[in-house]
Design a protein around this nucleic acid. Structure first.
Length: 466
RNA sequence: GUCCCCUUCGUCUAGCCCGGUCUAGGACACCAGGUUUUCAUCCUGGGUACUGGGGUUCGAAUCCCCAAGGGGGCGCCA
């Protein structure tokens, strides 16, 4: 194990695409480990590929991390003693380290680029190579018989891998490449633990060659399993449905729930709990407990977590979030307040029924406007059991007699009286009535809806229903 | 093609390091019953898994080997 002093982990995204679940989980594990050990978590932006970078993607990364509650101790917006934290601003650092490699004879130029020279016997070979599109073809490459390097991985144990090709340090256009900047910055920023996806395992042998060539001790490595797409083959990518953090943000998922679920993708708490506060995760999180096998992303289970968090939320916090979702859906105006007793009474009912805040508008439109939609499916189901309009009409006289909609006993009595008069069962009236006044087949308790709507609005809706 | 990693219910996993308590436990999902005037709540129950083969052992999900399958890399992307 490393004894380099306080733990320093980093997340090093490149702003070349949207921020997805896999990246978030990598950031989270680095953050968790730093918090567990009382170390520092550094955010570093790997924006060396000028052609593909965008400020828009960068903003999404910051937003998503903040949304998930992953804060960084050093990095953009935070400062720190090892900046700047954007690689596009660190060219002199790279030049410095490159010079070290040059003076020890480990670099050479070819096709305008600067390459790293592996030590070992060289020979050219024909090899088969598979393109991204699946086509295979032959090519001639120079291979090097380099000594295998041993990767001490906290999750995988010792992995031995031999590099067999020189690689590019600085591109022909003068921009330093990934392997150089990644290693140099981890050295310069005193990173002690490199926690990254398993797809980097084969880069790590290159990186260890670089550490060795620079005479620097490598950090501790921990290659975490990949997240596979929910269905189909391969790892999850930015293009898969449900892969983007910002999507869950837009859908009003609770960040605590998403973060909790992400913790469980590749790690399990020792105490067997699945839903647990982040403080408890931080206490328990150890890298050697991280799994080795890839995990498939199951959005349904995350939705379950989200629902559990929603239920457990203190009412005022729920009200705040619910109101903002309702406002976005255009059901309440900007100055609607959680102090409003009417709104409060609605929100209290909704919290226990809601699977997710993304459903709040669909499930509560009828509280806020007379223009609520009637679900055709529900109507179809109701009609099979009888004519819902007729039932509501039968109910109308008795309901008109009611003093208010506050007395549940009186309401039940009105329904029972009507049912007796028409030789029906009281239960035959509940569903049609609910449909008439809400347009839906389910929801909060009928008495509660009636009480909130009040007599006048209820009667208008019943009367209008056809 | 080549190198590396992985392999317990449909999915996430516990157990594996330190072999017997595993007729393999939990969660999500699913199915069935019950509660509920509705239901998206709640309760009860159910099915489904140690990839295959060989070995070691009195005994293997647990240790070893092989195979198969899955994943990743093999970019002047990161």
């Amino acid at each position: 194990m490393s004894n380099l002093g306080p733990v320093r982990t980093r997340f090093a995204p490149s702003p070349t695409g949207f921020f997805h679940i896999g990246g978030a989980r990598t950031a989270l594990f680095n953050w968790l480990y730093s918090r567990h050990t009382g170390g520092k978590f550094i955010l570093r932006i790997e924006d060396t590929d000028k052609a593909r970078n965008s400020e828009e993607f960068l903003r999404v990364i910051y937003d998503s991390l903040k949304w998930l509650g992953i804060d960084w101790d050093e990095g953009p917006g935070m400062g720190g003693g090892h900046g700047p934290y954007r690689q596009s601003e660190r060219n002199d650092v790279y030049r410095l380290y490159l010079e070290k490699l040059r003076t020890t004879g480990r670099t050479y130029e070819k096709d305008g680029a600067i390459w790293f020279r592996l030590n070992g016997e060289r020979h050219t070979v024909h090899e088969k190579y598979k393109e991204d599109d699946g086509t295979e073809h032959d090519r001639i490459v120079e291979r090097v018989k380099a000594a295998p390097v041993l990767i001490h991985d906290l999750i995988r144990g010792d992995v031995s891998r031999a590099e067999d090709r020189d690689f590019v340090l600085v591109r022909a256009n003068g921009e330093p490449g990934f392997h150089l900047v990644n290693v140099v910055d981890d050295i310069a920023m005193r990173i002690t633990h490199v926690i990254r996806g398993e797809d980097h395992l084969s880069n790590t042998s290159k990186h260890i060659e670089l550490y060795n060539a620079l005479g620097e001790p490598p950090p501790v490595f921990a290659h975490i399993p990949l997240i596979l797409k929910a269905d189909g083959k391969g790892k999850m990518s930015k293009r898969d449905r449900g892969a983007l953090i910002e999507e869950y943000q837009a859908r009003h998922f609770l960040p605590e729930a998403v973060r909790n679920f992400l913790c469980l993708l590749g790690w399990t708490p020792g105490d067997g709990r699945e839903i647990l506060p982040i403080a408890d995760v931080i206490t328990q999180f150890e890298l050697h407990d991280v799994h080795q096998a890839n995990a498939r992303f199951d959005e349904r289970k995350m939705a379950f977590f989200n629902q559990q968090y929603l239920r457990a939320m203190p009412a005022p916090a729920f009200a705040q979030k619910a109101l903002s979702a309702l406002h976005q859906a255009g059901l309440v105006d900007a100055n609607a307040s959680t102090d409003d007793a009417h709104i409060q009474s609605i929100l209290i009912l909704l919290q226990e029924k809601l699977p997710s805040l993304e459903n709040i508008a669909d499930m509560s439109t009828y509280f806020f406007t007379e223009e609520y939609p009637y679900s055709p499916n529900v109507r179809e189901t109701l009609t099979k059991k009888g004519d819902p309009v007729a039932r509501v009409r039968q109910l109308l006289p008795a309901f008109t007699q009611l003093a208010s909609m506050d007395d549940a006993t009186a309401i039940d009595a009105a329904i029972t009286t009507t049912a007796t008069a028409f030789a029906a069962k009281p239960s035959e009236y509940f569903a049609p009535l609910r449909y008439a006044i809400s347009g839906l087949g389910s929801g909060p308790h009928l008495h509660d809806i009636l009480r909130i709507l009040g007599k006048e609005r209820t009667l208008i809706r019943m009367d209008r229903f056809q």
